Amino acid sequence: MASWTFAVDRDDLSRTTVVDGPEVEAGEGAAVLRVDRVGVTANNVTYAVLGESFRYWRFFPPEGRGLESGWGLVPLWGFADVVSSTVAGVEPGQRVYGYLPPAGQLVVRPERVDATGFRDGSPHRADLPSPYNAYRLTTGDPAYRADEEDLLVLFRPLFFTSFMLADYLADNGFFGATTLVLSSASSKTAYATAFELRGQGPRLVGLTSPGNQRFTESLGCYDDVLTYAQVETLTPVPTAYLDLAGAPSTRHALREHLGDHLVRDVAVGLTYQVPNSEAAGEFFFAPVQMRKRGADWGRDELDRRFGAAWRRFADALGGRVDIRVGHGPEALRTAWLAAVAGRVPAQVGQVIAL
């Protein structure tokens, strides 16, 4: 089975290439996954922007895929099928959800195999964040529904961050804030967080561009939606800022306007591709809170709570997302370039069938 790989220039994310590769076979202790369905969102752009500092480029090394140095494989989330395996419990025909390369195939070395799935024990991934190494069988996943695969492709990794972010805030008493301000409020990660936080106490204010204001208001998860130019209309009360945009001007305006009332400043994402963790008070990394809750609750209870939260969100989301499905490597390239350029409307979700 011939393969292909889509790669981006690490120094110029708008420069891309697609290369063909040889047939891949499962050696001893390995399995081959055929990448089937993935999503392309601003979250994937964040992986590329933080590729070096957060080691995202290391998950899927370009070596052995016919690529020269300087190219990178941007991690994607989606579904893949096991096509061959020499590992007991990992069988051809099984379908898994997880972290995948922008390529036709992925060779994994399954470890900790059980009814829920397995982890990739490949040596180059051993010291990378463990949540990204897990592959979940659809048959052992309480959040899975076959008719919702596209929603899961687009939202599950983002909702994982949103779920953990909301839990982190609640776990810390919202740091005393009575208002939570979320930038890039029309982004999937932001409004999924707002859906999870709704009704928990603090007032939720979304900041967005004028062009996305109506869509963001229609979501019904924010108490108020303001444009970035309206930051100075915020009431000076204890406020936590959840920065999912990374625009320095917004952070500056909030600090100038709120002063000591800004009790927390948390960088979550990089919609505008501006590294902002140093400017913010802290950088939120979902796997850290996941590890804490895994210890607090145990894996089964964490899975149960995530599944229940996902169901609430999926039901509330309804038909608000316009899912557009492309096919093949060229559609993947088109979707990637649109995401890098910020040309994807807030209500659109890009899914690629490979």
Rank of each mutant, 00 (worst) to 15 (best):
Y135G: 11
F174P: 12
D300E: 06
D36M: 07
K292Y: 13
G319H: 10
E91V: 15
D265V: 05
L128D: 07
G281R: 12
A314K: 09
D81H: 14
D141N: 15
Y144I: 15
G342W: 06
R324C: 00
E63M: 01
L165W: 01
A2L: 14
R55N: 05
Y272A: 14
T239N: 06
E91Y: 01
Y222G: 01
Y222N: 06
L158F: 00
A194I: 14
Y97E: 03
N172Q: 04
A26W: 10
L317W: 04
L137Q: 00
R305N: 04
D114E: 04
G27W: 11
T208F: 09
A280W: 09
Y135C: 08
R10L: 11
M164N: 00
P238A: 13
S3C: 12
L154D: 03
R214Y: 03
A48P: 10
L254W: 02
T235N: 03
V231N: 12
R255I: 05
G21L: 10
A335E: 05
W57T: 05
F285V: 06
E68L: 06
S84P: 02
V231R: 14
S218P: 03
D127V: 08
L152N: 12
L137N: 00
V83W: 03
G342K: 09
G259I: 03
V18H: 00
N133F: 02
F159Y: 15
A279S: 08
G140M: 08
